[in-house]
Design a protein around this nucleic acid. Structure first.
Lengths: 341, 341
DNA sequence: CTTGTTTACTTAAACGTTTAAGCATATTTT
DNA sequence: AAAATATGCTTAAACGTTTAAGTAAACAAG
């Protein structure tokens, strides 16, 4: 096995101390008044031996790892994949590396990941927390490592957080459906304690109320039984003498499951049923009737999360800050104005 | 700012040496013959001070970081997102952590990432290499850090690699289209030097030849101009007196761009045009005529990559090994048997 | 020609762990 | 009672880096 080159190897070659080599290779030759010739010689040897500084040793000395930990709820969902990407990009721009893990909406996995990342001495954490992880977050607060939440948060725990106007976005989407003439608007959401989802529900309910529409047609599915329960929900919405004429999905995953079933049933969008969803998806573009959706500004969210975290890392006493970013309703064919009957 | 607890802090509290604390907390009390009472006391203090071992210091000592680096071509593509997820899971099962980066198909970014990960002393690397990264791979071979390629590889560079039977999968897909009665089968692929894509093209061409079909209708688009050039390609396939009656897409991204345009044109699938694509996508399920596709066994690929890499890490002299995993053709409506005219 | 300054380097400690080796004291074996 | 072994701990070096402090020689200033 080949061995890695260390400062010592270079120092030996050059016949000097490791300190001198370190000064040269970290560009502190001025400050340390290293001779020009020697500097040249050292650089040459370093390059010949293909020296790569040992970041671990450096970290141990400096106390910083220049690494941030990222825990997403589910990396196989492109929404989170895109967030991960923007975070990684923005981190890199600031000379940070990202260690990531996917909790897969699993509380135990989330706890394990937090511990793994803390043990790795990350300088900070960005979390998309799982349902029920309040205790883990509170535990984190006792640690010296700063963190920010993104996408999801717990209103009763005051921490730095990047989010969107979930309530308002839902409200606007429902208002849009009302304006296009829909009278019986259903919603399919997760059965969950997650605050951001419940804000979306509240937006729906209050929008209906303020437009004096029929009582709420809210159906819930569990994340763990998304397929069956989304289908049940749609069955319920479409049954009876007065079936729903529009449905609002609380997330892209719900919408995709729902649309699969809507296709199977032969229900026409938007003639029989208008559709609006939170989040975006390539599948929405490709649908025969492109789906109206609420766009979350992933790029801004990711960048804001990194920026906020770096501020916390720089200033350990910085107070918590909430960043709320606006969404946009992208209107397309799936919610076209209803024809007069 | 709170400070992290170290062995020294615990040792001080307990009035013993750090060595003793280390023995206890790494469960080497037997071997080191630590007194039972003292062990208990130390554990209690550790737990009270919320001690988390400093993995960096441990790594420096052991020379291992228990970390593997992962560079994917584009984390926002769910295909790569899913690979990342399986790799992360399998790594975790083996007590490894994953540091990842997305090269975004950019050669410079890829090179930067490799260096960053090497500096972080990863114990090994898993790469989905970018087009043109042969030099980077060759450079890597000179390093003591083992690595494996996944999804893509360079046949002229003998390294460990996990792949699929790209040629055969294409060949089978085309054979399927021929059997369903298609006579003018087009293909849309990337203009690229990437070997795995070109194997897919070869599968197409040779399948056509062996079924004595018309000359190849191969159209190419550049990754960087996917939207415009996919559209051009489809225009070309559909023009003239004898337009194509089937199209085979070399990747999911190409298929999604293509299908968007096919929708705009009002071309009916599969009546006017049968469609088969490499890779899967939720959009394929949701299409009004669900798309026939070639399924890559992502789970097996990811697991195999980790397993192979760990073998290399354990045995630095293990020779390179190629793993080829079979794909499956999932036949659906988009390639339904053509009706007799 | 002493003193001070500059130049070019070295020494050594530190970061938080791990672990072989050492050293008392107590207990058992001859 | 001396020798051997067991018990319970400490010492110290090491991993690869950084960096304040030290040193020795060359040179300039008085």
């Amino acid at each position: 096995m080949k061995k890695k080159t260390s400062l010592k190897d270079i120092a030996q070659e050059a016949g000097v101390s490791t300190a001198l080599v370190s000064y040269v290779l970290t560009n502190k030759e001025e400050k340390a008044r290293v001779g020009q010739e020697m500097a040249k010689k050292i650089r040459k040897i370093a390059s010949r031996l293909n020296y790569q500084p040992n970041h671990i040793a450096r970290s141990l000395k400096s106390g910083r790892s220049d690494t941030i930990g990222l825990i997403v709820a589910d990396i196989s969902n492109p929404f989170f994949g895109n967030i991960a990407r923007t975070i990684e990009d923005e981190a890199k721009r600031n000379n940070y590396t990202v260690i990531f893990g996917s909790s897969d909406e699993n509380l135990e996995k989330s706890g394990d990941l937090i511990n793994v990342l803390l043990n790795r001495q990350v300088d900070g954490l960005i979390l998309i927390p799982t349902e029920g992880s309040e205790q883990q977050i509170k535990q984190l607060q006792k640690q010296p490592v700063p963190f920010v939440l993104i996408d999801r948060y717990f209103p009763q725990i005051p921490v730095s957080q990047i989010g969107i106007n979930n309530y308002q976005a839902s409200y606007n989407a429902i208002t849009h459906l009302v304006k296009t003439g829909r009278q019986r608007i259903g919603m399919i959401a997760y059965k969950t304690a997650l605050y951001h989802i419940n804000e979306r529900k509240r937006g729906y309910t209050e929008a209906l109320a303020s437009h004096s529409q029929q009582p709420s047609l809210m159906k819930l599915a569990r994340y763990s039984h998304i397929r069956e329960e989304t289908r049940q929900a749609i069955d319920q919405l479409l049954q009876g003498r007065k079936p729903a004429d529009a449905v609002f999905f609380a997330t892209n995953s719900l919408a995709i499951e729902g649309l699969k079933y809507i296709n199977e049933l032969g229900v026409r969008v938007p003639e029989d049923l208008a559709v609006v969803s939170f989040d975006e998806s390539e599948a929405f573009d490709l649908y025969y009737s492109p789906i109206t959706f609420i766009r979350q500004p992933i790029l801004e969210m990711g960048n804001a999360a990194v920026r906020l975290l770096l501020e916390h890392i720089k200033d350990g006493d910085k107070p918590a800050e909430n960043v709320c970013i606006d969404t946009a309703l992208v209107i397309r064919q799936s919610s076209n104005r209803q024809k007069k009957k």
